[in-house]
Structures are given as structure tokens and as C-alpha cells.
Amino acid sequence: MQVELRKAIDEAFVQARQELRARRSAEAMVWLERAHILTQRRPWLHARSHCLMLRAGWQQGDVREVLGQMPRILAALLFSRIWVPIGNTGRARVSAFQPMPISEELRRLLE
């Protein structure tokens, strides 16, 4: 994995965990969406982003998010190397199959 991409992934997870510890789950979700986009092709890291989204959803008391993350964790482990919808943020409020626009910064990191 290229150095810049690895640093960006690590930063997203570190920031998300800090926000979760501070019980700022909405802010954590912003970092987790970034982590999700960057890790979609890496099963363990992809699943990790969904696990942390589940935790953030739990903190928010968001039943839809919690229930939506459960199948996504399993799907991340099983299908990340086969097919992913590029740019999808990973949240339960969007279809798990919907490609989404991606920022130029993230596109550059993923090339």
C-alpha cells in the first residue's frame, strides 16, 4: 500500500476513535466515511470502518445505523476484493450498492 494512502487511512481511524471516545459520534462518522472510501478494497480495514460505524450508531441511538452496519461488516469481509461501489460512504442511510461521487483528493490517494 502506498505511503500516502496508508497515512490517510491511519489518520481517519485515529481521528474517528478520538471523536468516539469524546462521544462526538457525528464527527466520528465524517472520518469513518473517509476511512470507508479509502479502505473499500481491503477487507479487514473495510470491515473495521463498518464496525466503528456500528459503534457510532450505537452512541447516537440510531437503530437504523446499527442494524444497517451488521450485514455490511460481513459483506466487507466477503466481497471487498470482488466488487465495491466506488465512493460509497458506507452509511446505512445509503444503498450498499450505490456508487457515489468521490473527491479529487480521495481519487488521487486511491490511484
Rank of each mutant, 00 (worst) to 15 (best):
P85L: 07
E4F: 01
R107N: 12
T89K: 13
A96K: 12
H50V: 11
A96S: 14
R64M: 07
E33D: 10
G61M: 07
E105S: 15
A26I: 07
R21N: 15
W44D: 12
L109D: 12
I102R: 11
V94Y: 15
R91H: 13
E105Q: 15
R107Q: 15
Q69A: 03
R108D: 14
S95I: 02
H46Y: 11
A16Q: 10
A56D: 06
F97C: 00
Q2M: 07
D62G: 04
R23N: 13
L106W: 11
Q40G: 04
F13H: 02
V3G: 03
H46A: 01
E105P: 02
S25G: 02
V14H: 09
T89H: 09
F79D: 02
M100Y: 06
P71V: 00
L45A: 10
E105G: 04
A26R: 14
L110T: 12
A35S: 00
P43I: 08
R108I: 05
A28Q: 09
G57E: 06
W58M: 09
A76F: 03
V14C: 06
E33C: 01
V66Y: 08
L109C: 08
G90T: 07
R23Y: 02
R107W: 12
V94A: 11
E11D: 14
F97Y: 08
I9E: 05
A12M: 01
R48Y: 11
R91W: 08
G87T: 10
V63I: 14
K7W: 06
M53W: 03
R42Q: 15
A47N: 03
P101F: 06
L67P: 01
P85R: 12
A56P: 04
E65V: 06
K7V: 00
R48G: 04
E11P: 02
L52P: 13
R107T: 14
A8D: 10
R107V: 04
E104R: 15
G68E: 10
R34V: 05
T89D: 15
I73H: 09
L38A: 01
Q40L: 05
S95P: 02
R48N: 11
L38P: 08
P101R: 09
I9Y: 09
A92Y: 02
A75K: 11
R93W: 09
I37W: 07
A92K: 06
V3N: 13
V94N: 14
Q15M: 10
R6F: 01
A76E: 06
R17Y: 04
A47W: 09
A26K: 10
M53F: 01
S95E: 00
A26M: 03
D10C: 07
R21C: 00
S103N: 00
P71F: 01
V30M: 03
W58H: 09
E4W: 05
G61K: 03
F79Q: 10
W58N: 01
W31D: 08
D62F: 04
L110M: 14
C51H: 14
G61P: 01
I37V: 15
E111G: 14
H36W: 06
W58E: 03
Q69D: 04
E11N: 14
E4C: 06
R21E: 14
H50L: 13
L109N: 13
R48M: 12
R48I: 05
E65T: 12
S25H: 01
L5I: 02
A56N: 06
R55I: 03
Q40I: 05
M29I: 09
V3A: 13
Q59H: 07
R72Y: 02
P43K: 09
Q69G: 03
L54T: 08
V30I: 11
R55D: 11
N88W: 05
D10V: 05
S80M: 12
M29S: 00
L110W: 09
